[in-house]
Each structure stands twice: as structure tokens, then as C-alpha cells.
Design a protein around this nucleic acid. Sequence first.
DNA 1: AAACTCATTATACAAATGGTTAATCAAAGC
DNA 2: GCTTTGATTAACCATTTGTATAATGAGTTT
Lengths: 236, 236
Amino acid sequence: MNVKKTRTPRGKRDSTDAEAGTGDAQTTPPNSRTLQKEATRAAILQSALLIFSERGFDGGSTRDIAAHAGVHHALIKYYFGSKDTLWRAAVTFLFERQAAEMSFDPPATAVTAKTHLSRRDHAREILRQYVLYCARHPEHARLMMQESVRDSERLQWAADTFISGTASRAERFVQMLQREGILPDVSVPALVYIIVGSAQLFYTLAPEVRRVWGIDPADEAVTAAHIEALLAVLVR
Amino acid sequence: MNVKKTRTPRGKRDSTDAEAGTGDAQTTPPNSRTLQKEATRAAILQSALLIFSERGFDGGSTRDIAAHAGVHHALIKYYFGSKDTLWRAAVTFLFERQAAEMSFDPPATAVTAKTHLSRRDHAREILRQYVLYCARHPEHARLMMQESVRDSERLQWAADTFISGTASRAERFVQMLQREGILPDVSVPALVYIIVGSAQLFYTLAPEVRRVWGIDPADEAVTAAHIEALLAVLVR
DNA sequence: AAACTCATTATACAAATGGTTAATCAAAGC
DNA sequence: GCTTTGATTAACCATTTGTATAATGAGTTT
């Protein structure tokens, strides 16, 4: 990663091109100092996302996260306080990004939308958006899965803070589809995990898919095929 | 766990009730020594299954595994050589047990079977068996998932040794359902992960399900509902 | 009962890990 | 230009972890 572009062995520099890159220096002029601070924090967070999602909380070391971000490991305490806090910040980032990029209940369809889609097409569009989100950010499902396989304080916190809300929205989405006759009248929680599981596993296990099937879920055409398959199965 | 029933602080004992428990002392009479050895090895393996499946390879420590099994941590090297070998032994156990308990292509239905089930009922029965397997042994999917989220030598080994074979059988199963018109003619790998994901996520994330939805996937009635939902969605 | 086997334990060790503190040094403010 | 601020680094510490080796002692064999 090394977001801090080409760090020289010792200190930090290249502050010039940092602010030269973005010409948006106006409202509360962002110091090259604050810019760099922002970049460092973001680099750590992104590395944490990657490492935690691939190795879990226990398996991912803060030193590896720091090394991957190209910063000194002491900076993790400086910016995030502790490993636990860093993990929570990572989870918060994931769910806030998801909320920004994807909405389960609203009309969905990134920009336009609602311009006369049948309920069935509406459902298709939302599911399509969800699969695309999973394809774009596989580390979200990976990280959460790592934590949801056993009960812990972290899971409790994540459940209370984020998962419950997401679950409620998914529940309403499923119930809507049931009212429309698109989904069968069976257990709602079961349906939720059936939908989520069928949408995300393909991307969560992408390394396995590549090795065993010789295809790459990150490939646009492959994802298109997956969406086609998912919709053919789920939306009758 | 502590399979070695009620270990006294120091050494080992209770060899008497150990062989008194099973009256099958005939062909190569199992020493109380060999019996105990078998039990210790099995205890370590089971603990490894649990710890690895919940924390991953990096996150699960051999000392925790030993402690959970109620044995000295040095025994892990004695019985399995190294942490890596123990992990491979655990994976081998998982896939051999799966092969013994579940078959994807054969008529399935544990005992009888094939006595005139329609192709649709046949598909239903196989899927039902698979969901029951996931419910019975959630650590299988958990452990494999932990390893399949990133490429590694372990994933490569598992893919070559076990996953590829399972994938081939799943592929043939899906193609059969497609020929029967039960599944749509879309990407086979996508369908495989859709089926697997929709079947197992509910059990893989059981701790989350309990906390967020207040139901327990291990509950028989809950699993029945999940099977009903899965079949209603997948087998049209 | 004595000798032997080997499953188990005690102990050690280097490396890795999460966390803490003081030093450093470039940018910001004067 | 000089001082101040604070982002970054160096060094350190107590634990944990994987691995290795020697000691132990119960069960088996003779």
C-alpha cells in the first residue's frame, strides 16, 4: 500500500506535490500537515481493513497493518488508541461506506430510478446493486464473517451498532418481496441469509474461486454472469 | 473439552473405566495405553477444529488448542509434528467426515433412496442432506472460509487435495439439475456458490443469527424452516 | 518384580506481538 | 529566523507463541 507516496528512508517529505495535487485549498486551508495526517490515518485504516478481513482480529497483527500502510507501528496507538479501537474504526468505516453506496429499502438504482419499474424489476435492481457492492468491496463481508463465527464482545458491539439496523432493513425488504409474491412465504431470517449468502460467498471466497474454477469474480463479465444467475434463482 | 475424563492434577489414570467402557476388546486388544493415545489425539484434533474454525490459522494458538483439549501443549508436536500439520490433519478430517456423511452425486437419502423419487424430489433430498450437514458441523464451513479469503500455500493445498474434487461433484450436480430444468441455464460456478452460500451462511454465522435475530440455527425447528425456505427458493 | 517403552510433562528459547515512553524533526506560527 | 507544535520514530517491556529437548513416570513386557 504505502499511501504516503515514496517515503524516504528517514523522515517525511514531498509535502509540495501533496497539496499541489488537489487544487482545492480554500475553506480552512488544509495544511500540508493536516493533509498528510489525513493520508496516514486513511492508509492505516485501509490496511487494517485488508489485514483484519483476511486474517481476523486475532490473526492480524498491528505491526503487519502498520508495515502494509508504510508507517511506524506506534502510529496505530497515536491515531486509533488500540488494536481494538482500530478494529471498531474499520467496521464503522465499512458500514458507513455501505450506507453511502447502497441502500436496501429506497428505490436504489444509483441515480435515476423509480421511473416506472415493476416491483419485480425494482427487486432485481436492488439485488443487482447489492451484488455489485459485494464485488467492489469483498473485504466487508470477509471482515464481518471473521467476527460473526463466534460470540465475542466485538460481535456484540457490531451487532448492536450496525448489524441489527442492516438486518431490519433486509427484513423489510424481504417482507416486501413476499407481499409482491416474488419470494415464497417462508421464514424471513432464513430468506435473508439465503439472499445474503448467495450474493456474497462468490466474492468472499474469491481466492478459492480463482484457484479452483479458474475464473476471477472481480472480472466484470464474471460478475455479470453471477448477477444473472442470482436473479434467475431468486426473483421468480 | 477435556476428553481425557477428569484428569488428576499430575499424571494420567482412570485406565480401568476406559477399557471397561467399551466391551470390544478382541482383535488386537486395545491397550488402555493405545486407547488413551487415541483419545488424546482425537481430543487435540477436535479442539483444533473448533479453535481454527473460530479464529483462523494465524489467530488460533496451539497452546489454546492444547488447553481446550486438556493436554500439555508439547503433545501437539508429539502427535502432529507442527501447527501446520495439525491444521492439515483437521482439514483432512473434515473432508473425510463429509465424504462419509454426505454425498453430492449419489442418490443421497442416507439409507433407502432412489425408490421412485422424481428428479425434483431427488434434488430436494440432496439439498436437504447438505443443509443438515452444515447444521451438524458448522465448523467445516467456518474453517474453510477462514482459509479461502486469501491465497496461501494452505489454500493451494486444500484446493488441490479436497476442494477441487468437491467442486467437480457440485458442478455435475448443478448440470444435472439444469438438464432437468430445475435450475436455470446460467453460469455453473455462480450457481454452485449461490447454492453453497445460501445453504451454509445461516450456520456459519450462527452466533450472529442468535444475537441479531434471537433464533438459534442449531434448533431443529429453525433448521427445518431454513430447509423449507432454501428448497422453496432453489427448486422451482 | 525388574526392565523397558513411550505418552506426558517441565523447561527453555527465540521470535513476534500489543502497548508505552521519550526522543526527534519538519512544518506552523510568530 | 526562532520558537512552538505535533506527527513520526526509536527503544523498551511484558506476554504470547511455535518449537525443541530433556526429564518423568505409568503401563507393558518379560
